[in-house]
Amino acid sequence: MLTLTVAATAAAGAYAMLGVSIVVLYRMAGVVNFSVAVVGAFGAYTTAAAFGQGWPFGAAMVVGIALAAALAMLTGLIFARFFATADSAARTAAMIAATVGLFAVGFRIFGDAPRSVPVLFPGVSWSAGNVVVTLSSIIVIGAAILTVLLMRWVLARTRLGTQVRAMSERPVTAELLGVPIYARTTTVWGFTGAVSAFGMIVVASNLPGGFSSLGFLIFPAMAAALIGAFRSLPLAFAGGLVVAIIESLSSYRPSWAEYRGAVPFLIALVVLLWTQRKQVWDAAR
């Protein structure tokens, strides 16, 4: 019988949120954002720190989200300035370097000891059968759905969407056509930073580990983005739910529990074997 705990539903929402923001950034800026979880972790821990100083939770959350957005914008500026025309391998490598730097800054500021992050809307939950859903899980899953819908609309229907799509494919051409590259890039990066911080704040109260355990949510988030093939927002959203559910199932029996950490890998394996079953050639003729 399927038992979904509070942690699993919160994780589902957070994975979906992170997976969706990875895909959004990949489509809009052409970068695989390995730092999405660590930037979100900054937001969550800043929120916790401000709350610990006696700030009201709402204000603490705004500060945390704003900080994450600012960090993401800074990363985005570095990419727009130095790596706009770099090839995909170099951009991915640069993203790894940036992620390593962000982790180091995070450890320096927050340490890696476990911290308690306040629960958003504590105590409000419903249970139906074996599924327990908290209000915060519903909110984060709802926010992920909203993000998917909003981004689909922006990408397909708005001038901003056309501009960022042009930017991600042909940055120089877009700039020559008068697209304000830096402004657009920072907007997109900042948005994904804010979104991932929100997801992370919700999930952080259920995660006992320290800063690194939040940052390492990049693994399930990447698996979710991979399910969406780095293109489809709805599939990345669904991917986040699938990863969380399978992880939760693996805790169902004690003998399976130790393989929980392998779930993103197994999912990635299946997805890649399926999507890459035909030989695909690199683009350049």
């Binding site: 693994f219 990447m222 929980r260 950490g261 993103p264 890998f265 890459q276």
Partner: peptide, 23 residues
């Protein structure tokens, strides 16, 4: 991973690394 390039290979090796590390 042999058909993967740039992006997919990086993601695949990352989750592989996490799985071995944890399991």
């Amino acid at each position: 991973a042999l058909r993967l390039r740039g992006l997919n290979l990086a993601v695949f090796t990352l989750v592989f690394s996490a799985a071995v590390s944890r399991v």
